[in-house]
Write a protein that binds this DNA or RNA. Structure first.
Lengths: 223, 223
DNA sequence: CATGAGTTTTGGTCAAGCCAATTTTGCCGA
DNA sequence: TCGGCAAAATTGGCTTGACCAAAACTCATG
């Protein structure tokens, strides 16, 4: 089976293998372009194309007049977050981040978003009175606020942190949190946040969000 | 201000502009390599290097014997994989989160951490004077601050956001940021942050961090 | 021993050409 | 007229060779 890919791709892989094999540690200098091209049996332009690909993905660094250097390969730029940490850390992280985000959000809060948040809280109240756990509404509330900051990265981070609470690791302790009283308290705090947003008061919103998540963390950890 | 980046990076940006300007819609075919090279005033090998960069970041597709085609500008990139967002969003997210974290960090800042930060900035200055890119020091500085908040989740988020700048998708524009002048400015801003931390002044630290990341974003996006 | 000018090394770019895959053209035959 | 297929034109893939500019190195000099 011959490799039908373009030569620069094959060459880039071969250089990656050289580095992975340990011939060149991070920080080390690769052979000069002319020499490396001859060693790999390709022309210099083709090797240069491969080097550009490797430079883009962060495998190497090219310094003009100096040489080609191996970078730290220990950071595969993976987005896979293993967030299985302690509940207190999780809630503290959420308090810090969501409090900061809501300051941004309060500035650009639209009437449509306000209305959506009201609807979410109404559904949440409905869930509680009917004995259902309003987890989805809770999630929608926090996510809607994060999204109103108009930054997909921030929204994604908030989503990941929220969902972390429902990971297998957290599931064991979760029961404590899900009493009707706890949810009623959470709903009250949500209304306080919404009131601050309706008033377009960033600092009040920040305080309300921080209060909510701190209280939420305490409820979660109570025995 | 002359553009000192490598020619392939400048050329890749110019082709991106052609596409962004609407001259070539998704699915359209760009002029042939020989023609496009002449049109842009560069040699064909240099244009080819630029095209490889654009192919890697998903802007175009190169079909042997057929032509160069514009791909969909929207990169959903499938099942929740890539975080490839706009640089401005990334830097905004960092500004929001790291500014919030440093408020926590300033409260519990130890003398040891202060000393470590000083050492990092010294190494950063050394890198700059010797013409090296102090990316590792930059990373260490921001990560050390995040870690001093004593929350592994927050530290991990800061790390992921930092490394996102060096992901393949961001790499094409990376050259803008990496001039000596830019790094010198970044170093000055880092010193301002450190000064606020030494004074145990959370609000000053927050302001300095926000200023730094906002300026960093502007430098990164400058044409 | 420090220093700085000249030399060497190394990456950056260009030019021209040939090969291979694809597309287009247009001729031929049914 | 229409379909099909082969030659020609188009287009990307790759090589050789050369010259320029930045960085690193050498070594004589003060």
């Amino acid at each position: 089976m011959t490799d039908t890919r373009r030569l620069y791709q094959q060459t880039a892989d071969r250089v990656r293998q050289l580095i992975a094999k340990g011939d060149y540690q991070p920080g080390a200098r690769l052979p000069a372009e002319r020499e490396l091209a001859q060693q790999l049996g390709v022309s210099r332009p083709s090797l240069r194309e491969a080097l550009i690909a490797l430079e883009i993905d962060g495998t190497i660094e090219i310094r003009m007049g100096s040489g080609i250097y191996v970078l730290n390969t220990t950071r595969p730029s993976g987005n896979g977050r293993s967030l299985g940490e302690s509940p207190s850390e999780l809630m503290q992280a959420r308090a810090v981040i969501e409090s900061a985000i809501i300051v941004q959000a309060a500035a650009t809060m639209t009437d449509e978003t306000i209305a959506a948040l009201r609807a979410i809280l109404a559904a949440m109240a409905d869930d509680i009175t009917q004995g259902r756990k309003p987890i989805e509404q809770d999630r929608a509330f926090h996510l809607a606020i994060a999204e109103s900051a108009d930054n997909t990265l921030l929204a994604e981070i908030v989503t990941n942190l929220f969902d972390e609470r429902h990971s297998p690791l957290s599931a064991g302790i979760r029961g404590h949190f899900e009493t009707t009283d706890s949810w009623t308290a959470a709903l009250t705090e949500h209304h306080a946040i919404l009131a601050a947003l309706e008033a377009r008061d960033p600092l009040a919103a920040q305080a309300a969000m921080h209060t909510h998540l701190a209280a939420s963390g305490r409820r979660w950890l109570e025995t």
